[in-house]
Design a protein around this nucleic acid. Structure first.
Lengths: 150, 150
DNA sequence: ATTAACATTGACGTTAACGTTAATGTTGTT
DNA sequence: AACAACATTAACGTTAACGTCAATGTTAAT
């Protein structure tokens, strides 16, 4: 099973830049710092990005632009995911049930680390939102009182 | 009413640095860029920070370290709050009911702008969390299956 | 085989957000 | 009044995360 769904879906740097919204410079930079080396190169040394690369770039974009993580943070997150992939691979070839469970447990630990990071931010943001919404409600009440005096 | 609770609670830059965790350089920088000028100066031109200054600094710390906002973002947030304070002041001296309502409406607009900023981040984070939790649940299921085969 | 469009690697430039150092002034306690 | 401890401004340095050339090589279509 598991057909080769994307046998030849490799993209030029320009295509990837257009699709992801990153500049070409940024894509080269991400390779330079080891954050995201493209899957391959052409004979003439042109970068070739896979669909998986593009997906990862989209995740990076989320983490950076929307969530404000630094590249250093993102690197850690990605590395954790990489380790999970490793685990997943090892898992497939593991025969011992206990070892399998142990590997899943390790993966869970990595996931929980990320969850903590995220939930910390979530808590802060939710608190800010609650305060703002409380003000809106308070204003609503004041408006009602004002209308009542008319 | 409204007693002077903090008649003479002014702090040196060092005290503020210790309390907030910012460095002295950073405090000076925040004044330099107009983000947070200290309430006053001594005769000899030493900065004096008020309790309100310290509180604002703690908010800034939250916004930056925990939530990853840039100083530019923070400046906007603070300016919006400042305008709300202005509105609140004007509001108190306003006598026309219609004008009062209009001012509240304007304040609500500012609040909603911030809410949008926050909810955008919240949505992104919640999506990330959902994905991670889905993986955890999936693992949980796998673990159960493994135990079942024992 | 030519050529336009796209790619490569340097290498230097830029902005935000501070760090560091130096020369000098202030405060508060003795 | 003296002195240690803390403050000031000015100015140059640093790091992350790219931007912007310039010189050169590659691809793909004619």
């Amino acid at each position: 099973m598991m057909a080769d769904t994307d046998v030849q879906s490799l993209f030029s740097i320009e295509q990837v830049a257009t699709r992801t919204g990153f500049t070409k410079r940024t894509l080269r930079y991400y390779e330079e710092v080891g954050l995201l080396p493209p899957t391959g190169r052409t004979e003439g040394n042109y970068r070739r990005y896979s669909e998986a690369d593009v997906e990862l770039l989209e995740r990076i974009k989320n983490l950076r632009e929307f969530l404000g993580f630094s590249l250093a943070d993102i690197r850690k997150i990605i590395e954790a995911e990489d380790e999970r992939v490793q685990l997943r691979d090892a898992y497939k070839h593991e025969i011992e049930v206990d070892a399998k469970v142990a590997q899943i447990n390790r993966a869970d630990e990595l996931i929980r680390n990320q969850l903590h990071l995220i939930e910390k931010k979530l808590a802060g943001l939710e608190q800010m939102r609650a305060k703002l919404m409380a003000k809106l409600e308070h204003h609503e009440q004041i408006r009602n009182e004002l209308l009542y005096t008319k």
